[in-house]
């Protein structure tokens, strides 16, 4: 038992690596703060284009985009963008490569969620708002979007958690976020405590969010919605 504790939960190692892991965590948080808004804005733009256009072609093109990027494993996209672009003479820094690849795929997911939210608002709402004299943009901004966002909030949060977890892929590009810092500490100290600690940090950060979504979903179920 003592041996297991010394191996996986070694306090001396934990204290030694904690500053390094916390700076890794800071990098993780910065990456998430960059990537989540980019994906959300991209997804909102796509969802608005999809729901507001009269052109079938635009809708088909957006559907193709969404399904295409939903079919790509995130890691494949990250590796492709960062390792294939240098062959055509474009050197992207890891942050930019990561941001581009995440933006491509997360905007597809956010688009799906927001589109479902927008189309679920009855057309009568828009017609009523327009008949009060609001412009199409005002109607979207003050009537449709606030309700749509509220209705799909659990899905939006769930997707954002997935993206936060996805920032761990940055370790593959050698960016010193939380997972990468833990891995380097583990290989220097020959002890897996940093990995356990990193997992515990992810858990401490995301567990409340996961719980919140579950509670939100079951309260909506109880209301029959």
């Amino acid at each position: 038992m003592q041996e297991i504790l010394d191996t996986f939960f070694n306090p001396a190692v934990a204290v030694q690596v904690l500053p390094m892991l916390l700076s890794g965590l800071w990098m993780t948080v910065k990456l998430a703060a960059l990537i989540i808004p980019l994906g959300l804005l991209g997804g909102l733009a796509l969802a608005l284009a999809h729901t507001q256009t009269r052109s079938r072609k635009v809708r088909i093109a957006i559907n193709l985009y969404v399904d295409f990027f939903r079919s790509f494993p995130q890691l494949v996209l990250v590796i492709f963008v960062s390792f294939a672009t240098p062959f055509i003479g474009i050197e992207l820094s890891p942050v930019v490569a990561l941001a581009i690849s995440f933006m491509l795929s997360t905007s597809a997911y956010y688009c799906e969620i927001l589109r479902a939210g927008i189309t679920a608002i009855p057309a009568g709402q828009t017609e009523a708002a327009r008949s009060t004299g609001m412009s199409a943009t005002q109607t979207l901004r003050h009537v449709v979007l606030p309700q749509a966002f509220r209705n799909v909030l659990p899905d939006l949060l769930g997707n954002s958690i997935e993206i936060f977890k996805g920032t761990s892929l940055a370790s593959v590009l050698g960016m010193s976020e939380l997972l990468y810092s833990a891995q380097s500490a583990q290989s220097v100290l020959f002890n897996p405590t940093p990995l356990v600690l990193a997992a515990a940090i992810y858990l401490a950060l995301l567990w409340p969010a996961v719980r919140f979504i579950s509670a939100l979903e079951s309260s909506r179920r109880a209301q029959g919605g």
Binding site: I161, K165, S168
Partner: peptide
């Protein structure tokens, strides 16, 4: 909850 909160890559590593 634990498995939903941790990144798959972290669990794998």
């Amino acid at each position: 909850d634990v498995l939903r909160a941790m990144p798959p890559l972290v669990i794998l590593i």
